[in-house]
């Protein structure tokens, strides 16, 4: 049973939502299933920001870097979180709790600056507020 080429991205998204990232063996299998060379699957996976090829932390923080958030100090929020966690965008904390990423725009511009942690959106942030949220999540475990 073969898959359709047009389902490639959806399949990769599903794999990533289950495993947290795209393991090499999974991508090999997907290539087989869809009937495309592995290099093409690799090319697609590395093109879109959503896909990660290495495992991430328990929670993913996405700090919005959209225009409204930028104007309202999104860069300051990002810096505060970077300093606190000790990792830059794309990095994962050594304790494996958090992966920090930036995102172009969450669409919650009227509540800028924003960030999401996994699927929860947090708006109208200040550096202190953002750190409080992260501490709370870390405590929750």
């Amino acid at each position: 049973m073969r898959g359709e080429r047009s389902d490639l991205i959806a399949i990769l998204q599903e794999v990533q939502s289950r495993v947290g990232y795209l393991p090499e063996e999974a991508m090999q299998r997907v290539a087989e299933h869809v009937g495309v060379p592995e290099s093409e699957v690799y090319g697609v996976a590395t093109f879109y920001s959503q896909f990660r090829l290495t495992p991430g932390g328990k929670s993913t923080i996405r700090v919005c870097q959209g225009t409204a958030c930028h104007v309202q100090g999104g860069a300051i929020i990002l810096k505060a979180i970077e300093d606190e966690l000790g990792v830059g965008p794309g990095g994962t904390t050594p304790d494996g709790n958090f992966t920090l990423e930036t995102v172009a725009c969450l669409g919650a511009c009227a509540l800028s600056p924003n960030m999401t942690v996994d699927d929860e959106v947090y708006g109208q942030l200040t550096p202190e507020k953002s750190l409080d949220i992260l501490n709370e999540i870390a405590e929750r475990g």
Binding site: V36, P37, S39, E40, Y42, G43, T46, F47
Partner: peptide, 9 residues
């Protein structure tokens, strides 16, 4: 054959 493709962006 498809041994290579563009990667990243």
């Amino acid at each position: 054959v498809g041994a290579v493709d563009l990667a990243y962006r």
